[in-house]
Design a protein around this nucleic acid. Structure first.
Lengths: 194, 194
DNA sequence: AAACATATGATACAGTATGTCTCATCTAAG
DNA sequence: CTTAGATGAGACATACTGTATCATATGTTT
């Protein structure tokens, strides 16, 4: 059985990567229920026993896969722009990730996290890092005066991210840049009038 | 095999209901993957063959269960109140449903709809009725002048519902009345200043 | 009340999936 | 070269899946 944390053996790295790639494809094509030891073995070409050696429990495969993919790429943009523009840029990259593979992975995690605490922990790590950088950005805006000072930062973050999630996860609509622009304008715009 | 649409036979009604109750409990306790013919038969006390007679495919059980539960109770409140108060009342009942069983069922549907078109159709019916009554309410507000006329109704609906979904589905936090109140105040409040 | 139609229960059956084990072979590292 | 560890191939028992059969129970009709 290979060491789960620091894998130095290149043979182990190869098989592990091949199996994870297969699991990723299975998840993307057929959903979480398709990610089993048997099917991962079939798709990856690795022996079934080896899949069990790496992940004794079926949920471990998904958790490993999801933990590695749990990056929504909500990196803060360069600080030489107005806050509202930086917020827009941040949310655009976030929406782009949701439109791509991130949306499916997030969907899978939401469906599993309700009944699996480990998946929920991974989901929590995945969904707190992004909003945090957004909150920092909004806090900067409040200091600058470009965002209303009586606005709750946490709620404001929810109001910017919530509609984007809604559109992707429930409506299965692509989140366009125009949608993000309108959302930011409607949410942060009126503050300039106060 | 019983007629799926108009069941008049009381015997069929009994077994069908018993099996659906078992499926509901299994879904709530252990998630969609636990809703199988075998386990529904065990929990309900019905013979396994009978479960197959009612739903030949495993997904049909969930789809039947989800379609019946797909009511988010987004009923419009009495029209003798200001629009913003009616919006608040509407969203409060919506949040209450999400806090209860509706949240788990919706979570299950989101996780399945990504890879099952039939579930997505059911999800679509479930998530369009509610926003529609909200949109009608917001349109009334625009006519009255209590909501900014330059606001896109669809976007405004998303901005009110999105954060509520976000809080329940991703954060697993209870959506309190206070949260709804703050959300409505922040979203519709500034319009009064314009 | 009797006769008919249908749904259910119980069981059997083959096929497949799951989880564990063994051992020969292969790979990596000293 | 030698040794430790990982993999491949297969066996094995168990459980789950999907279908079929037939006796029994239930509902409907005359």
């Amino acid at each position: 059985m290979p060491d789960p944390e620091s894998i130095t053996n290149p043979q182990v790295q190869r098989t592990h990567r091949a199996m994870l790639d297969a699991a990723r494809r299975l998840l993307s094509d057929n959903g979480p229920s398709a990610v089993t030891h048997l099917r991962v073995a079939e798709v990856s070409g690795v022996a079934r026993a080896t899949v069990y050696r790496h992940w004794p429990d079926r949920a471990d495969i998904l958790l490993d896969l999801l933990s590695r993919s749990a990056d929504l790429h909500l990196t803060p943009p360069p600080p030489d722009l107005p806050v509202t523009d930086r917020v827009t840029a941040l949310l655009r990259t976030f929406a782009a990730t949701l439109n791509g593979d991130g949306g499916q992975i997030l969907t899978a995690m939401i469906g599993l996290a309700e009944w699996d605490d480990d998946v929920f922990s991974a989901l929590e790590r995945m969904t707190t890092r992004g909003p945090q950088s957004l909150r920092n950005l909004l806090a900067t805006g409040i200091e600058e005066g470009s965002v209303r000072s009586d606005t709750d930062v946490d709620l404001l973050s929810d109001r910017l991210i919530g509609p984007i999630y809604l559109r992707r996860l429930l409506y299965h609509d692509e989140v366009t840049d125009a949608y993000v622009d309108d959302l930011v304008a409607a949410t942060l715009g009126p503050s300039l009038l106060g």
